[in-house]
Simulated scan of single mutants.
Amino acid sequence: MASSLYSNAQHVDFDSVLAMDDPGMISMFEALEASGLRGFLGCPAVVYEDALVDFFENASVRNGVVFSTVGGQIVKISEKLFAESFELPVEGLEDLSEMPKDSIFDARSIVSLSGEQINLSGKKNQMKMPYRLLCDIVAKAISVKAGSFNAITVEKFSLMTAVVCGVKMNWAKFLFGILKKMVAVKTKQAKGFAIQISLLLATFPAVELGEASEFPASKILSKKTVLRFVSINDRDGAEEISGAAAKKAVSKKRTAADIEAVVPKKKRTSKKKSLSSISSLEMVVVAEEALVVEPLDVEEPRCSSADAVDLIIQQVLDETRADEAPADTIEPAVAVEKNWFDLPYEDIVKKWEAERPVVTA
């Protein structure tokens, strides 16, 4: 489709933009007009899509002249025809490398939004709004470069300098040189000049151009589209500023690594038994040791560890109460009969049996 040949193109409706209420925009478009580019940028916006496709498929450069066949007819476009068709200046600088350094120096301050010289390796949002639009015009309609249109390049800024500072350019030679690059096989120059080539093809009576198409109104700079450009760039600028502020705020926040470094990691420790568990265990051991008695002729019933613990606890409580009781409440110890050996043997045995402790649950 031929529409791909002007997907990034721009054209200028000078009558419309020069009637705007924006002094900055008017000044910029007046500078474009004074540079001699009005005939090229503001020519009638008509496109012959079928003829354009034929032209680029068959075009080549021979001895500095562009040749092609359109609808079976040979067309020949010379630099002279190119210059006369668009009333382009034929005097002045022919190469951008010849641009005066002092003019570039001055332009860097003239277009600057902050008043300081802009960075030539930066973005166009450093510039005042009219010059952001001029940057788009030189990128899309003059140099016809593919890629990012937000970045400033030396080539684009040199073209802007020629317009802003009124440096005389041989626009006929410069623009025709771009056309030759478009049709050269070995170059990566983007295809463009859709309106201009269509008008040039219309100068050949024998060429069948096909049906004409109107150039998209959205790609023609008029009062309406310029205001839209300003609105979009204002919004994008505000979003970029807010995005930068948010990024700065995030950078001030402590990262997860910082937090991890400050907050000590919780050490893994084995679970310790509670004091009550230890005490219970010790009491069970004591109870079991206390229950070890001399064997009796009669086998006594065994008690469980829990019963032993209860028994020990009860003994401790009894002893505590006994220690805390008044002295007069303590029963006197029973005196041991000193002459037990005088008793008969049977009485001694009965006395022993009566005094033998019996351990029960």
Rank of each mutant, 00 (worst) to 15 (best):
K247V: 05
Q315A: 13
S270L: 09
Q10A: 13
L134G: 00
V111A: 09
A308D: 00
D54Q: 11
E84K: 14
F105E: 09
S114T: 14
I313N: 12
V75T: 11
S3D: 13
V226Y: 12
A327R: 14
A256I: 14
P216V: 05
S279T: 11
V316E: 13
P264G: 08
G243D: 10
I74L: 15
E288S: 11
V359W: 15
G24L: 02
A190W: 02
G147A: 05
M99G: 07
P326E: 11
V334Y: 03
E282K: 11
D234I: 02
D328Y: 08
S304C: 09
F82S: 00
A335E: 12
T329S: 15
A172S: 11
A2E: 01
S198G: 05
K124C: 03
F215C: 14
S103R: 03
E299G: 09
G177N: 11
T69D: 02
N339Q: 11
A31D: 00
D307S: 08
E300N: 12
G92W: 09
I26V: 14
K248Q: 14
V17R: 03
L296V: 09
V154W: 07
L209P: 02
D234K: 15
V111W: 00
V250N: 11
K273Q: 10
G42Y: 04
V183F: 02
Q196A: 03
G192C: 06
A322Y: 12
S16D: 10
K351N: 15
T329F: 13
D54G: 11
L200N: 14
Y6M: 06
K101I: 06
E353W: 08
G177Q: 09
K252L: 07
R38A: 14
S270M: 06
R228K: 12
E260N: 07
K224N: 13
E208V: 12
K338M: 09
K140L: 10
G71M: 03
M129S: 00
F149C: 08
S148L: 05
P89A: 04
A217Q: 12
F105N: 06
V111L: 03
